[in-house]
Structures are given as structure tokens and as C-alpha cells.
């Protein structure tokens, strides 16, 4: 029981730290790509950590089965959303100063195909 509580508390605290990282990154980082770089990872980490902590606290029950379903859903969808947002920011031309732009040739190829 004590091990269960400690593990659940550890996971919840780490999830809260991930969420705080997301919030501070959205508040403080200078441009869009660095904000998304921090936010998209830490959102997945925070949500999954807190829900996994709740599963450990709950034990095996219908509620924890649904929480597992929610974890799988978050694990699939959140990176997709981050990818699509960043990609559309690149296509919009909402760019900051870049040292190197690897996707320039790729974008030109796409435009010639259309």
C-alpha cells in the first residue's frame, strides 16, 4: 500500500512539473517553434503521468480501464496535433531567424507538383 501511494504521488508530482514546464514555456519562450518544441512534449508527458498515477492509486477497476483507453488516445493524438500545427506555421511563413532551413527544397518540390 505504501509503495502504491509513493509511486502514485511521484507520478502525479512529475505530471504537475511537466504542466508547469508547458505553461512557463508558453509564457517565456521567444518564438513559435521553440514554444511548440517545449509544449508538445510536456503536454503528452504531463497528461499521461497524472492519469497513470490515478490508475496506480485506483487499482484494477472499470474506471482504470477507461483511463487506460484515454492514455492510448492522448498518446496517439497529441503528437499529431503538434506536428500539424508546426507544419502549418512553416507553410504560412510564420518563421523566425533560422540558421539552416532543411525543408526549403522539399517545399519547392511540393509547389512544382501542384
Amino acid at each position: 500500500m505504501i509503495i502504491q501511494d509513493i509511486l502514485a504521488g511521484f507520478l502525479m508530482i512529475s505530471g504537475v512539473i511537466f504542466f508547469l514546464t508547458t505553461a512557463i514555456a508558453l509564457l517565456r519562450f521567444p518564438d513559435f517553434f521553440s514554444r511548440m518544441h517545449a509544449a508538445s512534449k510536456c503536454l503528452v508527458g504531463g497528461g499521461i503521468s497524472i492519469i497513470f498515477g490515478l490508475i496506480i492509486q485506483e487499482g484494477i477497476s472499470p474506471l482504470s480501464l477507461r483511463l487506460l483507453l484515454l492514455i492510448i488516445f492522448l498518446l496517439i493524438t497529441t503528437p499529431v496535433v503538434g506536428h500539424a500545427l508546426t507544419r502549418s506555421a512553416y507553410q504560412y511563413g510564420y518563421l523566425s531567424e533560422m540558421v539552416q532551413d532543411d525543408m526549403k527544397d522539399l517545399k519547392a518540390g511540393n509547389d512544382s507538383n501542384d
Partner: peptide, 22 residues
Amino acid sequence: HVLDRIAAINAIGIMLLTVLVI
């Protein structure tokens, strides 16, 4: 920019989803 706002909406949505789960 609009895309900054969309990223913030995504973050707030997932945080409120976690609140619902808790």
C-alpha cells in the same frame, strides 16, 4: 499570431481534460 493562440488552446484543453479525469 493566430497559431500561438491555437497552441495555447491545445494546452488549456488538455489541462482541463486532466482536471475532468481527476
